[in-house]
Amino acid sequence: MERLAFLFLLTASVVGATTPTASDVVAGVEKNLAPDNFQALYAFTNYRTDGTVMNYEVRFSVKDVDHAHGYFLKPEREKGREILRLGDAIWTFIPGAGRIVRIADRESFAGGDFSNADVLRVDWLKHYKAQFASETEKQWIIDLSANSSDASYAKMRLWVEKKTAQPLQQYFYDSKGTLLKRLLYGSVRDFGKLSRPARLIMENVFTTQKTELKVLDMNFSVNIPENRFFVDRLGK
């Protein structure tokens, strides 16, 4: 429904001769990547430059943009680890130590190339100003410039397919314009309530290390208990 509503909005904008703004497009992508109230199973694979490969499986429960909870299912060593986002704060529960620790959202997620914010904070319009860098027949290319000190990157560039309103590619830059990371989106899959890219590859352009994220499953008919998003409930 949300996908249809968004496509309808875009189509209406075109038909009505009012082209969508860059913010409209980004808002649609945000809503598609991080809708409210769902559970999803994500598989992360970190491909390190030394040849080692690490696999993680995390079940995410998301209430809204400010409330997200992740529970590590694999590997066995990490089973029981939890991660909780409450607004701008991120907490993790480490089962081995039995402790809850507040972590920075810029830190690497599970040792890969995604940061915690990349995975848990798809609220770009809150921290970035969106404007078109270019527009082709098939794609919008949007620059997102940080306008808040809470932004993780000075600038991002997002490629969005007009036909599907799905993201295709995303670049991340530092404040001088140096490219830091590239995120590739693909394998758009229908998860019922919405379709979204089910395969993402984040590449650190300097270290050439890559992390692959696969969305294995998304479930929207869930009733996530409120206490899942309490810090003191982590590990219980």
Binding site: I141, Y171, Y173, T178, L184, G186, R199, L200, K210
Partner: peptide, 22 residues
């Protein structure tokens, strides 16, 4: 400062694309 002039279209990541052949 540099300005990224890459405003060419991107291609979608296919299911088959291997990490070596990105």
């Amino acid at each position: 400062n540099v300005q990224d002039t890459t405003v060419e279209e991107a291609t979608s990541l296919s299911d088959e694309a291997s990490l070596e052949n990105l």
